[in-house]
Design a binder for these strands. Structure first.
Lengths: 219, 219
DNA sequence: TGTACATCAGTGAACGCGCGTTCACTGATGTAC
DNA sequence: TGTACATCAGTGAACGCGCGTTCACTGATGTAC
């Protein structure tokens, strides 16, 4: 059942050193993001990206070994962005009111993550690609694992327990549901994103209230 | 921001009429499912599918206009399966105990859906492709919309209310979270699927308990 | 029951195309003196 | 400040390959009489 890993090189080759090169590099990423929106992951190619970025293909190969490396860079940037949003949210509220304050402000984090991803060119498409394209999946998993671990530690500490397997389950569900809600809200369907995120945030809150009650110790 | 629809023909051409043809047809779908596992959605091609199915490429083109139509058929079959599981679950419990019984048995539906998808060859990969590959997205959306509508109607009726926008939000979140949990459990990570689905089911239950309490009317 | 015929199913060969990738090269930028 | 040189950045041209797709064809299956 486990997939054969195709061993694709994902890391960048030459780093841009001059200002001109930096512009080219950024153009490549922007063009790739735009093409992700226009044609989708299945149709994207190095040829298309280079053409769209206004350079020739060998110029792209100067910085990236293949198209997956370009997508990987895009995905990594998005995951970094989301991680940063989480970090600053956590610091802001945890220092002010501990674990309880975090839970009260889940909706805020949902809204901020949603807004930031929506404002990123191709943010939604990159998010989707991170789920489906094999060489990118680890990026998403790493990011979610990191955030999940934070959740787990904070929650375990607040409850005066060890971060055991059950706490890991709670954290995993929370993080996964969180980002699934953001993804759901990114679909421009008939339902406004705010409503989805408000009620979705409430669902996560209720879940943790229950965890606390089951544990029988207040925050 | 909206993607340019590439207008891909997705429907099958000739239906198999003879037993031999039916076998060929099934082999194509099975080969495609296996390749989805082996090489992923980005690398799959009609050539590869035909070779894997033990036929020549024109034989594949007899039944499908392109590779997306093959994936579409796979996706449609999976959505049908999940819909059927939902239908029979709903009939079973709703007739026995109304809306309350449905909520009490969410975990059962999670487990059944998870098991069925896992047992389907390439079930996980098809699920992922349904999110990311543009021509397949509507399949997932349609299926979820259908199930969401059922949820919405049942819930509104149980609460003695109209299926208004808020109820639609509740139903949409429920269905999306539900299938995200199934997808999460399909990842063969360190956490056993059962634990994720049990606690995930509990989260959805708590969410609806809250909806009922807020509405101020018992089920 | 046999056979001629119609339809269904699958093949071999060929095509043009865009893909990924590499090469030797020209041009741009930075810097040592 | 000027210029020679080193390094960085990007180009034009070419390649082999697998892709999607189509064609006229052969072989298999079903059926009318």
């Amino acid at each position: 059942m486990s997939r054969i890993r195709p061993q694709v090189e994902l890391f960048e080759k030459n780093k841009p050193r001059q200002a001109r090169a930096k512009r080219t590099y950024d153009n490549i990423l922007l063009a790739a993001a735009e093409l992700l929106v226009e044609v989708g992951v299945e149709r994207i190619s190095t040829n298309l990206i280079a053409e769209h970025a206004g350079i020739t293909v060998p110029a792209l190969y100067r910085y990236f070994p293949n198209k997956y490396a370009v997508l990987y860079a895009l995905g990594a940037a998005l995951m970094d962005l989301q991680n940063q949003i989480f970090e600053s949210w956590q610091e802001r509220h945890f220092s002010a009111g501990g674990a309880g304050a975090l839970m009260e402000n889940i909706e805020e984090l949902l809204l901020e993550t949603h807004r930031a991803t929506r404002n990123q060119v191709g943010g939604h498409e990159i998010t989707q690609a991170l789920r489906a394209v094999q060489p990118l999946q680890e990026l998403r998993q790493q990011s979610h694992a990191l955030i999940g671990q934070r959740f787990c530690e904070v929650a375990a500490h607040a409850l005066g327990r060890e971060p055991d397997e059950e706490m890991t389950i709670h954290a995993t569900i929370t993080v996964d549901t969180f980002y699934s809600l953001v993804e759901l809200a990114l679909n421009d369907g008939p339902i406004p994103a705010e409503g989805l995120l408000r009620h979705g945030g409430r669902m996560i809150q209720l879940y943790w209230q229950d965890v606390i009650e089951q544990a029988g110790s207040p925050v």
